[in-house]
């Protein structure tokens, strides 16, 4: 899968879980400030990504994840 296609799948998860418009899901978007997402929203997003991409993300790996780009890179590195 190309990076673009992977990001589109990632984006559709984020749109569904975080209930934000797709055009706000960009690499620089910050979960707290730009997407109004708190720590539990991030956990829910990662749960959806685990199921969509059939991967496992340890809870400790979420520490320091503050932007869409950081979350995407975490997922992409596991594919």
């Amino acid at each position: 899968m190309s990076d673009d296609a992977t990001f589109e799948k990632f984006k559709s998860c984020a749109v569904e879980v975080l209930q934000v418009p797709g055009d706000k899901v960009v690499r620089d978007a910050r979960f707290a400030d730009d997407l109004d997402a708190d720590s539990l929203d991030l956990v829910e997003l990662v749960m959806a990504l685990e199921e969509t991409f059939d991967i496992t993300v340890d809870e400790a790996e979420l520490d320091g994840i503050e932007t869409i780009g950081q979350a995407f890179d975490l997922i992409a590195a596991k594919l």
Binding site: S39, L40, V43, E44, V46, M47, E59, L62
Partner: peptide, 11 residues
Amino acid sequence: DGREIFRRAVR
């Protein structure tokens, strides 16, 4: 560990 419990609880 609230975050991990959240995830496991839902599943």
